[in-house]
Design a protein around this nucleic acid. Structure first.
Length: 207
DNA sequence: CGTCGGGCTAAGG
DNA sequence: CCTTAGCCCGACG
């Protein structure tokens, strides 16, 4: 093969997510054996699955220290607190704080990280988009995962052949718990924030 | 045999 | 130059 490094496609990623949502994290072999995913991930090994999943959730896989005496990435590991409003803190805060650290069928990305703290570039991908969508929707009662998913899908991914698949996956993810909704209280405004591990890209690509 | 974690290194910014 | 992400390797069960 020409390419030494074969990049993962959205389909492969989606299949991986679906597989994880179905069997849980760690059952790479099982996922690979599944009829639905086998076709897509035929060229990937169980190790590849694991690696990809690790790369998807970089933040929590890192565990604490990221500097190993090397080029010390000065990544500001985000502030250990969400910077909402002073009155925003409530019982939900602690709940969100020591949230899933990933393991099991949940994935996760931290919510605090993707708040307003993220100015631009670096580590904000789909999460940022989700945040944007939530803000854009600006529903007083909060937005549901499906609504957000639909919104994102329609906004960023125009008529594609896999938008159907995405929708289905998102739905499945929500049901399985891959996609979780968190409640963030902010000045009496209930905002349903969704955390997910999506990291798709390439709205247009050809095989 | 399969999973997990670390490390290397190619690509891209 | 630095960051990102795929791949490889060794360890553990």
């Amino acid at each position: 093969m020409g390419a030494r490094k074969q990049k993962w496609t959205s389909e492969e990623e989606a299949a991986l997510r679906a597989g994880i949502a179905r069997y849980g994290v760690g059952s790479w072999r099982l996922i690979l054996k599944d009829d639905d995913f086998r076709s897509i991930l035929s060229c990937r090994s169980n190790v590849d699955l694991k690696d990809k999943w690790r790369n998807i959730n970089v933040f929590f896989t890192e565990s604490g220290s990221m500097d190993k005496g090397r080029t010390a990435m000065k990544k500001n590991r985000a502030t250990p607190r969400r910077n909402d409003h002073p009155m925003a803190k409530s019982t939900v805060a602690s709940d969100v704080d020591d949230e899933i650290v990933d393991e099991q069928p949940i994935a996760s990305v931290s919510s605090e990280l993707w708040n307003v703290s993220i100015p631009k570039k670096s580590r904000s991908r789909l999460n940022n988009i989700i945040l944007e969508s939530v803000k854009n929707l600006n529903e007083p009662t909060g937005s549901h995962s499906t609504t957000i998913a639909k919104y994102i899908e329609e906004e960023y991914w125009p008529p594609s052949d896999f938008d159907r698949m995405l929708s289905a996956n998102l739905k499945d993810l929500t049901t399985s718990g891959e996609l979780i909704e968190r409640l963030i209280g902010s000045t009496g405004l209930h905002l349903h924030l969704v955390q997910c591990t999506l990291r798709d890209e390439a709205p247009k690509h050809c095989c």
